[in-house]
Design a protein around this nucleic acid. Sequence first.
DNA 1: CGTATTCAATACAGCAACGTATCTAACGCC
DNA 2: GGCGTTAGATACGTTGCTGTATTGAATACG
Lengths: 211, 211
Amino acid sequence: MDGTARDGGRMKRSRPATRERLLDAASEVFGERGFAAATVEEVCERAGFTRGAFYSNFATKEELLLALLDREEAQVLERLSAAVDTATRDSSLVSVVTGRLFDLQPFGSGNYGLRAELSLLAVRNPELAAPYLAARRAFRARFQPFLERALASAGLRLTVSADDALVTIEALFDVSARDALIAGADPNAGDNLARRMLPALLAGMTTRHGD
Amino acid sequence: MDGTARDGGRMKRSRPATRERLLDAASEVFGERGFAAATVEEVCERAGFTRGAFYSNFATKEELLLALLDREEAQVLERLSAAVDTATRDSSLVSVVTGRLFDLQPFGSGNYGLRAELSLLAVRNPELAAPYLAARRAFRARFQPFLERALASAGLRLTVSADDALVTIEALFDVSARDALIAGADPNAGDNLARRMLPALLAGMTTRHGD
DNA sequence: CGTATTCAATACAGCAACGTATCTAACGCC
DNA sequence: GGCGTTAGATACGTTGCTGTATTGAATACG
């Protein structure tokens, strides 16, 4: 599936590969339990290693967090770049924006836990603020063309800054996911809050093109 | 200031009073550090007690959390009830809604850390889901008249459900506070995201009354 | 084919925080 | 004003997790 392949079920021993697996596990565990409650033991278990492997690759749990943030940003931008060409135009404005945001969601698709965790960590931990803001800004900057093209092809134009628009749309999707998760519902359900409110939100921040 | 007064700097010994002070401290510490990273030691220090006092009032840290959630809900509803009559009508729709939400914000005014923490705990901890949802629903149910009266007096009517509207507005205020905090700015600044976007948001989900 | 090096496992020491059990002092009551 | 009760402080045991130091295996290289 990926470059660092397994050979017969046992991953070939390679530093980058174990780092990746540890980071994968960390993104899961941090999302599920939160950074503070997460133990490096659990991260290692989930990755199929012992703590020895971990401390051979990372100095502390904090360092793992930093590395995770870096990688998440890289992954998101990568995913966005790869998706630029797939310009669907057969569907409605709302479903285009919705689909794009769900697919390309920063910090992993549908992974609300990790997203929320990272944002709270950024609020509480000043040293995370800069990388966090940079990552999110980069995402919005790259997503912006999507939104504007989708709007343009519907004959609409933003009446607020594109950045404000994107932040607000993201917030809507986040709260939609959050409330669904808390209520035990499917965050991607067709009748979720995001889908109900997005038309109104888009309507409020756009006008017809010749205005 | 309050009923359980100090007598010359030393609080009179009373179980309810210490509970209150512990809960106050907990709301601070949980908001600042997060529930998992918070130690009961720090909560007690902040409240001016030792852990002995704590374990005399609460069995575990989790129980403290439950009690906190209960109290926050009660406080919010109380604050809402007390504010029902102060119906300002000299200011714009936006500033009315804005002011009300800032003043009556559930879970303490401006205390983003605690609000976010509690929501994440509710996502991760199924046993918190029900009380959390109940508290939020109660808040929205009581806040709804505010919004609808404010809109009505501006000649507007919602085109989406009042609940959806309130959830979305709250989400906007939350993300506004969050981003300000991360950026090291004042969440209540006059040019924050919430104030910039609220007009568009309200416009998108209302129509003039005779429509 | 053997040696050196790298990576991960194991074993260990130390700490921090929880929760308990005991003690002391204040308040209520008669 | 002594006596019982209640609230909070002190002291302690226990656990779980972190981070380090050491050992063992696998790979690369000569």
